[in-house]
């Protein structure tokens, strides 16, 4: 598996760290028990999965990668924060 980092180009998977599902949204501070779902529950999809990767051995960007969890095929790689300007 290689990830096509938008800043560094195509790099080996060992340069990146995985955080997980990019779909989860942090609830408001006073949201109560919804926080349990946010911290612990995951859709864990078999198929296209949007997930966070961190390019620790490269440009230190947080990335959102869309990848098929059944085949490891990567469809898109983008900065996690749209406002990231290089």
């Amino acid at each position: 598996m290689r990830i096509d980092c938008p800043f560094c180009g195509s790099r080996e998977i060992v340069e990146f760290s995985y955080l997980g599902d990019a779909g989860v949204q942090r609830p408001a501070p006073d949201a109560g028990s919804v926080f349990t779902d946010y911290v612990y529950l995951r859709d864990n999809v078999a198929g296209r999965h949007r997930e966070y990767w961190y390019h620790g051995s490269g440009c230190h960007s947080w990335l959102v990668v869309e990848r098929d969890t059944r085949s490891h095929e990567i469809f898109s790689v983008d900065y996690a924060h749209r406002e990231t300007v290089r």
């Binding site: 997980g20 599902d21 779902d37 612990y40 529950l41 995951r42 859709d43 864990n44 078999a46 969890t69």
Partner: peptide
């Protein structure tokens, strides 16, 4: 291995990643 997928059929979301 497939717990999340089978549980999803019953509308359950689990604290599990495969």
């Amino acid at each position: 291995g497939a717990s999340s997928q089978v549980a999803a059929m019953a509308g359950l979301k689990l604290p599990i990643e495969s």
